[in-house]
Nucleic acid binder design. Sequence first.
DNA 1: TGAAGGTACTGAAGGACTTCACTATCTTGC
DNA 2: GCAAGATAGTGAAGTCCTTCAGTACCTTCA
Lengths: 199, 199
Amino acid sequence: MHAVTDEAALRPGSEDIYRPRFVEDDEGYLYDCGFRDMLTGRGIDRDQVAAAEALRAVVIAGKVVTQRFEETLVKHGLTHPQFRTLMAIRYGAETGLHMHSIAIWLGVTPRNVTAIVDALEALGLVTRVPDPADRRAFKVKLTALGEERSVAAMRVNKADQRAVLGTLTTEETKQLRHLTMKLIRAVKEPEAAKEVRQK
Amino acid sequence: MHAVTDEAALRPGSEDIYRPRFVEDDEGYLYDCGFRDMLTGRGIDRDQVAAAEALRAVVIAGKVVTQRFEETLVKHGLTHPQFRTLMAIRYGAETGLHMHSIAIWLGVTPRNVTAIVDALEALGLVTRVPDPADRRAFKVKLTALGEERSVAAMRVNKADQRAVLGTLTTEETKQLRHLTMKLIRAVKEPEAAKEVRQK
DNA sequence: TGAAGGTACTGAAGGACTTCACTATCTTGC
DNA sequence: GCAAGATAGTGAAGTCCTTCAGTACCTTCA
């Protein structure tokens, strides 16, 4: 057991920089009091404050959730992208997954997958197997060790997910998925999103 | 006008790697069909699939929104962190802001703010003014050029925010803020979040 | 007043990710 | 059957961010 986290908590620069003040508005919805204070009384219209608050919350949520997962995974000798790659291979295909497919699952560039798989291969968790059907490509497969580690990591990650989403009801979780997917669609498919808006 | 984005759109590796298939479930809530397909029929319980979907959507939403903003800002010669720093200074204090305060606003480490401010100073958009009240510290202030640029960038960013949130109603925007803030609180203040859960 | 500990900032090193440029291979259409 | 163009993967270089370590300065309290 390494006491990295305990030490880190004491060290300047490592402390948790973002410390929002969670307050409920008159409808019972949470907001970050510090941020709202900064923005109010400066001639910014109400809608824009609402927009800025929501988008800021989404971006920060994505970040802190990722960091939260990373913390646990580090104890299992994995980074978050490494873990996600193992999951991609586990769930993507029994026969191994092409680098490009991993990139799509992770939502990163193929070049980045090269680096992640390099690291996983160095750890002995995956192997690159030449694809007989396409001599440019590899199938990336889990080794026995990789299988074992990914199962263990998945178990703790499952607990983390529960911890993070524990305060949300089943309905709220679905709402959250829906609203963030709407945001993603607005960015990825502006036209489709507009049509929906007009109905 | 540089045609960076047009060229990039044609180049392999630069294409949009994550291309979700947006589908509505029977309640009218959006989900990513490709991801759900990967996970179903593999002995994963329904709750965990729901959790994984929601968290994945949050993380991706944070990422794509950031990228979307970045794209526009690049045309104005600013990165997203640079822009956010300018905003922090504009809204944080008329008299200039300490590096540490900027770090808190941005939610990054003080060390990182040093680098961002270095870049902004090199661009001539801000200046470090020694703080007479604390000789360790600087007040970072906008220059006239920085003022001008930040106003212009703010205008386009406002339009971007509207574009991204355009498909959400006012109520949905508040819901989104609320749910993501709940997530942030669950990570940042696990105890407080648990209490709420028990009421 | 002066030692102990905390705070503001920065250098060095490193991780994750990106774009650009390149090789090797596959696919298509004439 | 073969040239033109697409696709799979990687090297090089650069960005943003991190942690760790170090300097200068402030604050506190005996």
